[in-house]
Computed example of a mutant assay.
Amino acid sequence: MAQAEMAQAEIIDALMAFLGQPGASEAEFEAMALRLFGYQFRHNEPYRRFALRRGRTPLTVRRWRDIPPVPIKAFKDLTLSCCPPEAAERVFMTSGTTQAGRGRSYHPTLAVWDRSMLDTFRRRVMRGRGRIRMGILFPDEAALPNSSLARYLTLARREFGTPESAVLVGAAGLDRDALLAALARAEAEAEPYALLGASYAFVPVLDALAARGRRFALPEGSFILDTGGFKGQSRELDPDEFYDALSAGFGVPRAACLNMYGMTELSTQFYDDGNATCPSLKSGPHWIRSRVVDPLTGADLPEGERGVLVHHDLAHFNAVSAILTEDAGEIAPGGFRLLGRVDGEASKGCSLAVAEFLAAAQG
């Protein structure tokens, strides 16, 4: 086995063991984060150039907070991968209208990504349930093999859904009749039901219910999970308006309307515990940490102050673990609050960070 392959196998084994340690201490997280930074520094050439420009090397970085984050837009311009791209088992791509404009995330194995998703979904969404009948408002991964959300929902249905669970979006779009029939059955049989999908996919469902004058009262134990926002695919809804409409349309309390926050450039998802109030508090498992920074300086901002979110995801081992997003947020006890997309000076700061990274990484 080649040296690079041995290093990859060792880091995967160490990560899988760390994912299985929910009681891991902050010191253990830091040790794993620094080990990963060393691995990525050695095997990811564009990232090494950037880190060197910043004066950050495995010899000088002593805290996970000092590991330099990569601006999320850099994934559209550069190949950020420790393994040869052609050796990846799966390539997830961001949404976009052209291949050239889509960010890519390379996975030499899906074992770590799948473990990250399943362990967290089991704890944060299923919460001790066995299986539940699911309706999926998004195409499956057979239709969208490069979509991380399609993979996520396929795993959710396979591992946690009953045999009657169904994908309700296909080549012809949303199957409204099948959805309404599933909702009616759940209501009549008092069978808990879960609807999962992209946030924008719920808007035409709500419109269809309104057009038909229909409302459902799903039984206790039912829940709704949305993710990803509206992305120009439907009309924008204010969060309170959106969750009010979901609660009214399906008879599910807002506390059972969950939101998952994830992205192609990460291998871990964040969750809230419902949206009884907005913005909700989001948090992740023990292998991910979040900071809020001033995008112009990169300095951490104090709790409660609005800035730009940086996520440090140990499960995202093959690219870079530290990601500078373009999402505004604030740190709060137990997690963070997502406050929309950055604008104004924060947006300018993110653009400057992208320019700096590309100049260093391509140099």
Score class of each variant (00 low, 15 high):
A2N: 14
E5T: 13
A9Y: 01
I12D: 13
A14E: 11
A27Y: 03
R35M: 10
L36K: 04
F37I: 10
Q40W: 01
R42N: 12
H43M: 07
N44T: 13
N44S: 07
N44G: 06
E45A: 12
R49I: 13
R49C: 12
R53H: 15
R53S: 15
T57P: 01
I67G: 08
I67F: 05
I67T: 13
K73D: 15
L78R: 02
P108V: 13
T109N: 04
L110C: 10
V112A: 08
V112D: 06
L118N: 03
V125Y: 00
R127V: 15
I132A: 08
G135L: 03
P139C: 11
R151P: 06
L153S: 10
T162V: 10
E164L: 07
V167M: 04
G173H: 02
R176H: 13
L179C: 09
L179A: 07
L180N: 09
A184V: 14
A184K: 05
E187H: 02
E189I: 06
E189W: 00
E189N: 04
Y193Q: 07
Y193I: 11
F202E: 04
V203W: 00
L206E: 08
D207M: 01
L209R: 00
A211F: 03
R214D: 09
R215L: 12
R215G: 14
S222R: 01
S222W: 02
D226R: 00
G232S: 08
D238P: 02
P239W: 00
F242I: 09
D244G: 11
D244R: 03
A245M: 05
A245L: 09
S247N: 04
A248Y: 01
G251S: 08
V252P: 01
A255L: 04
N259Q: 07
M260F: 08
M260K: 05
Y261D: 12
T268G: 08
Y271K: 02
A276T: 10
T277F: 07
C278A: 14
H286P: 05
I288C: 10
I288K: 00
R289P: 06
P295W: 04
E305P: 02
A319I: 09
V320Q: 03
V320H: 03
A322S: 10
I323N: 06
A332C: 14
A332T: 15
G335W: 00
E345D: 13
S347Q: 14
K348V: 15
L352I: 15
V354T: 15
A355W: 05
A355T: 15
E356H: 04
Q362A: 14
G363C: 07
